[in-house]
Simulated assay, not measured.
Amino acid sequence: MFFGLTIEKLLVIGVIAALLIGPDRLPRYAETLAHWTTRARDYLRSARTRVKEEMGDEFDDVDWRTLDPRRYDPRRIIREALLDDAPVPTVRAAAAGAAIASTASEPLRPGASFRPGDPPPFDSEAT
């Protein structure tokens, strides 16, 4: 299948095109189509050769089917991202949290509520 077109659909399109173009101009159009097809095939072949030359041995290691844009399903990507384990806090993240807590007017507590008139915690590194 070529972009979801079956042989029957291509045949119907060809018959309609032949009727619209007419028998006088049909050979010229068929020759032009053949020329464009040959040029496109040569262009794609040369592009593949250039990519293979530039990538070297890594070209054979790439699984090209995984790069097919038709395989990208946003629902699957989001599902996989949500199922990933939560990131483990690093030393740098813990140190940043301590710096924020030390600059606040009161210690940061998860789920802490603020009373009217109390200054909210302030992060000097935030924009």
Rank of each mutant, 00 (worst) to 15 (best):
F2V: 12
F3G: 07
G4V: 04
L5A: 15
I7L: 15
I7F: 15
E8V: 05
K9R: 14
L10S: 00
L11K: 15
I13K: 09
V15T: 09
V15K: 12
L20V: 13
L20C: 12
I21G: 03
I21M: 03
I21D: 01
G22T: 00
D24V: 08
L26H: 02
L26Y: 02
P27M: 05
Y29N: 03
A30K: 07
E31H: 06
T32S: 02
T32F: 08
T32K: 11
W36D: 14
T37K: 07
T38K: 10
R41P: 02
R45Q: 10
S46M: 05
R48I: 00
R48Q: 03
R48E: 06
R50Y: 01
V51L: 10
K52A: 15
E53H: 09
E54V: 07
M55N: 01
M55I: 07
G56N: 08
G56F: 03
G56H: 02
E58F: 04
D60R: 12
D60K: 13
D60G: 15
D61K: 11
D61N: 01
D63R: 11
D63Q: 09
R65C: 00
P69A: 10
R71V: 10
Y72D: 08
Y72T: 13
D73R: 14
D73M: 08
P74S: 15
R76P: 00
R76C: 00
I77Q: 15
E80T: 00
A81W: 08
A81H: 10
A81V: 01
L82W: 04
L83P: 00
D84W: 06
D84F: 06
D84S: 15
A86R: 12
T90G: 09
R92I: 10
A95C: 04
A95H: 12
A96E: 06
A98C: 01
A98Q: 10
A98S: 09
A98V: 09
A99M: 02
I100L: 11
A104K: 01
S105P: 11
P107K: 00
L108N: 08
L108K: 10
P116V: 12
G117K: 04
D118M: 07
D118A: 06
D123Q: 12
S124G: 10
S124M: 13
E125W: 13
A126Y: 13
A126E: 11
A126D: 15
T127D: 11
T127G: 05
